[in-house]
């Protein structure tokens, strides 16, 4: 048990080290954007008609602490993020980033995790059964659907569904909340309204994720089914569902869990595009906006860091799950 705690702690430390490295990269990227936060804000002001001087810029730089060396600024950013959980102020919007993101981040994460969960809930049983199925019809239908999922871009699927829905029902299915709930506080009614809207982005993101996961599960299963221990179990008279689930399926599950973090990453990458098309202002679209339109490096950095942190955290969880599931790892850790 002591070893297990040690293992968990060492993984946690590694996760934090990864996050620090990520934060350095993210922070450097934020710095690489031409111009500083101060210059950009004042330039933005300028376009709004304010007269500004070099002195104004210098004063603003000082106010934001931009005159300090790079590493010091990174350290203070890290301190704010890791210790206080504060991402500071947005460059352009001049709003507290935590307030700005708040719900939006959790909603985005929720949609991605729901898509991931749906993908695996479908892919694991279907992949296991299809790998052991000898029916060419089942296999070809699954293969076709799976390739369709892999080959069709998400935005195209989203557009097709929107077009279909608009023509048929007069509802474009965009957004995440009905008007009356948009600014309301969270309640069960609002949550229900959210679910009534969120199924579509979850479905679209889950569609290709399922196709991917299905390929993974199937490949892993085919690999396991061919192994000698399965033949040996067959030679002992074990057959049917018991043979399938207790032997190859159980042993294929480890690598499947391992692929979770990777898949979440891909879903995150696809979220902004889907969010843009479905006009989900409450999620990934904000990232594109902050990067492309307004060059809001503070906000973009915060978003990228949060996404990365989610993936690092999921990988940490899957590592622990794997250690608990696989006796080869578990025995090494807990004796």
């Amino acid at each position: 048990m002591a070893q297990f705690i040690q293992f968990t702690l060492s993984r946690a430390v590694m996760a934090i080290v990864t996050l620090l490295t990520v934060s350095l990269i993210v922070f450097s990227l934020m710095e690489l954007v031409p111009g500083t936060c101060a210059e950009r804000y004042l330039a933005f002001k300028n376009t709004q008609g304010s007269q500004i001087t070099v002195a104004d810029i210098e004063a603003e730089k000082k106010r934001l602490g931009l005159d300090r060396p790079f590493l010091v600024r990174w350290a203070s950013w890290v301190e704010n993020v890791f210790v206080r959980g504060q991402f500071g102020e947005s460059c352009i919007l001049r709003l507290n980033i935590n307030q700005l993101l708040a719900d939006k981040f959790w909603i985005s994460l929720g949609i991605c995790l729901a898509a991931l969960l749906a993908a695996y809930l479908i892919a694991i049983p279907v992949g296991i059964v299809s790998a052991s199925s000898k029916s060419p019809v089942t296999n070809n239908v699954l293969r076709f659907l799976s390739y369709l999922g892999l080959a069709m871009p998400n935005f195209l699927l989203a557009l097709i569904i929107m077009l279909f829905s608009t023509v048929m029902f007069g509802d474009s299915l965009t957004g995440l909340f009905s008007k009356e709930y948009r600014d309301a506080a969270w309640s069960w009614a609002k949550f229900g309204d959210f679910l009534a809207h969120a199924w579509l982005p979850i479905f679209i993101l889950g569609w290709s994720a399922t196709a991917f996961a299905l390929q993974t599960v199937r490949a892993l299963m085919l690999d396991e089914i061919g192994k000698l221990y399965v033949t040996a179990a067959t030679a002992r008279g074990i057959f049917g569902r018991r043979l399938l689930w207790r032997y190859p399926a159980r042993h294929a599950l480890g690598p499947v869990i391992n692929s979770l973090g990777f898949d979440l990453n891909r879903i995150f990458n696809e979220l902004p595009v889907v969010a843009l098309i479905l006009t989900l202002t409450e999620s990934g679209a904000l990232l594109i906006e902050s990067l492309a339109r307004s060059n809001d490096q503070q906000l973009a950095g915060a978003i990228i860091f949060l996404l990365t942190a989610s993936i690092v955290f999921l990988n940490f969880v899957t590592d622990i799950m794997l250690a608990l599931m696989d006796p080869r790892v578990r025995r090494g850790l807990m004796g």
Binding site: Y229, A235, R236, F239, H251, P327
Partner: peptide, 27 residues
């Protein structure tokens, strides 16, 4: 599968070249 149990582990048993590979690793 049930019928075949008589020759699979019933009246006939088999041992393999690789004992490591013939035991399921996580059972």
């Amino acid at each position: 599968g049930r019928e075949m149990q008589i020759v699979r582990g019933g009246a006939i048993s088999m041992i393999f070249q690789e004992p490591m590979a013939s035991f399921a690793p996580a059972i």
